[in-house]
Amino acid sequence: MIQRRNPVKTIILYVLLLAFAVLFIYPFFIQIATSFKTDPDAASNPLSLIPNPFDLHAWQQIFGQTGDTAVPIVTWLKNSVVITVVVTIARVFLDSLAGYALSRLHFRGRGMVFASVLAVMSVPGVALLIPKFLMVNYLGIYDTYTAMILPLIVDAAGVFIMKQFFDSVPISIEEAARMDGASIFRTFWSIVLPMARPALITLTILSFQGSWNEFSHFLVVTRGTPDHMTLVTGLASMTSGQLGAGTQYPLKLGTALLTTIPVAILFFALQRYFVRGASEGGVKG
């Protein structure tokens, strides 16, 4: 857009970018600051980044130090961690298993299976809320951890990403291993997977982020009692006023911050893989 070194244009470029950067980042700073404010301070100085007075009450509430059990956030945190870890491990393994088979193994019906994966990918998530409930209800696992975890352990988009990845790597090394007599699973496990590291990291990120931030699925397969809530569903019920939390913005924003932190850490540590994931898995609803 901007041609050879023109100082005025360069300055305009930076001013524009900085303005947008502030617009995109400032809400997060407000969020952090507000979680250390008192309720009245949050209401009267909403723009300020310096809590006055500095107050830890919201965080004590979050970690259950205040003796009021209305918002069992520690339980939610535990649920979030367990579900995310189980879903991520299972999903990365099963997606790459299926992706590998669809890319490399020649079996009857492969084309049809892949076509079905593509078809499933194109079903919009919103059309799946009631269906998921119906099936979970039918199987008698409504309001259980099984119902929260099992439907998430495979996702069509992840299978697609892995298949595309295996399509793009040369087959020769695997064939050498197979000639040496390694079984198919052995070749997959000790030769193929280690080579697929970049794709696996991308998939791990997408799965972690997806299951940590998941909302509507948990909403329809559980009754909404606090013991089956995750940080995200718990925060949603708190924010939409179901748990009688009142305004209490420091508490809500603190919980929102706690919800954001794990993904943020992952994001800053593995940024380039996030970038890859965004351009590969552009299917997030």
């Binding site: 970018l17 947008f20 950067a21 995109f24 980042i25 809400p27 997060f28 407000i30 969020q31 507000t34 949050a42 909403p46 982020q209 940590w212 931030n213 909302f215 995200v232 569903t233 925060l235 949603a236 924010t239 913005y249 809500k252 924003l253 919980t255 929102a256 911050l257 919800t259 954001t260 993904v263 943020a264 994001f267 800053f268 940024q271 996030f274 970038v275 965004a278």
Partner: peptide, 24 residues
């Protein structure tokens, strides 16, 4: 830096962001 700043909101939870906007 700029790419990170603009992309970061996209990776966070929609519920958490909505909570922040309710306050803002």
């Amino acid at each position: 830096f700029f790419r990170t700043a603009f992309y970061f909101p996209s990776v966070t939870s929609s519920i958490a962001i909505a909570t922040v906007f309710l306050f803002l």
